[in-house]
Design a protein around this nucleic acid. Sequence first.
DNA 1: AGCTCATATTAGTATAGACTAACGTTGTGT
DNA 2: ACACAACGTTAGTCTATACTAATATGAGCT
Lengths: 231, 231
Amino acid sequence: MPASTQDPVLSRSVEDYLKAIFRLSNQGGFATTSDIAALLTLSPPSVSGMVKRLSEMGLIEHVPYRGVQLTAQGRRAALRMIRRHRVLELYLTRNLGYDWDTVHNEAERLEHAVSDELIERMAAAMGDPHYDPHGDPIPTATGDIEETELIPLAEAQIGDALELRQVVTQDPARLRYFAEQGLVPGVRVVVTDRQPFNGPTTVLLNASGTARIVGQELAQLLSCRLAGREG
Amino acid sequence: MPASTQDPVLSRSVEDYLKAIFRLSNQGGFATTSDIAALLTLSPPSVSGMVKRLSEMGLIEHVPYRGVQLTAQGRRAALRMIRRHRVLELYLTRNLGYDWDTVHNEAERLEHAVSDELIERMAAAMGDPHYDPHGDPIPTATGDIEETELIPLAEAQIGDALELRQVVTQDPARLRYFAEQGLVPGVRVVVTDRQPFNGPTTVLLNASGTARIVGQELAQLLSCRLAGREG
DNA sequence: AGCTCATATTAGTATAGACTAACGTTGTGT
DNA sequence: ACACAACGTTAGTCTATACTAATATGAGCT
């Protein structure tokens, strides 16, 4: 890759905006000003200002009063940050004794400071892993990311055989609770019961054969791959 | 330690200024505006401006037209940065395959982003080491730093038995050369010759018994502990 | 269709930290 | 003792990024 193709160095703020926009417009839609503001805890006018700059830099497309979407260049930059974040989370967890509920903040700061070289060294030292501690896929160095069809446990049906893939929260208390319950990425379960009116879901852990009752709120946070459906 | 005693969070720039001032006023003197400017590659007026802010923050004492010195608080902050830098250099060298000539820049960026917790985890993982890859002493978490009487190889006398302790440069080319020559911290040598008029110094490596001829410029960069003097 | 409210944008301001140009200070050499 | 070079500081400006207050837009309800 010639040096002239190199993306410019971006500021911390810009990197954070791009990550936020990626998350918010993931399903192909627009990220709105107020959603970005809420995610980054900034005022909407601050976001409007930055949106203007990002769009002048060619990192996003802005449709006034509608929202923004990443350009190819913006998406590349966002995926680079996500790779950094997830590689860091995994490295800190595996090699420096961090728990999956405390590692997020550390990675959040480091992702802006590490060099690409360090990230690649860390990834190589771990055998180029594909998932972070929360089960989120790690984008490749070339900017590709795995997209899997996942369903929240809360929407699975009784009889479904599932592999738990992602835990979609950064809240330390919830993460600790999931860990205690053995509800971590990679675990296989079968849905044995669901109470009506957004009631709890009961699953059987394949490994131990023990049952877990998961309330509606938490069951929304557990993204699963459907491995088999009864009937 | 009560939370009220906690030092405030400092900006990247402030941290860099404090490190620079520490280095320049190490022997108890003043750091001058232009020395700071040269070290950080900034203009002297920028330094004057920051000096004002740092002194209002209580981090330095400023004597106009003389220079600045760190206060106890400023010194604490500077030593914290130096600890971070050196722990990072050693960790990256030992655990992620960095060479001692490339590790400086990476540590320079990371030192502003890592948490105290991460530094202590890294230090613990390495068995709380006392020296970085260049032989520089690592300050303790409580802000103490070892001060040893060292002499440059260029000032040693013929017959002196020396332990090479520090390599005082960050220049990758020089560092690589020293490594090739086996002139790294911990090595023991005896001075066997010195040519006049700032000529080269010849040393015998104790381990291998081989000789090395070191020019005046490089001999200035090798700080040694005097282990024995002949006669 | 029109009104209203949520949301977005513009206008104007603040702060940190950098710069250049202009002005002070100091110490050294004659 | 004084002049001047070298160094330090002040004055004024710029950029990135945030803010609040004021204004514009558009979508849904009647």
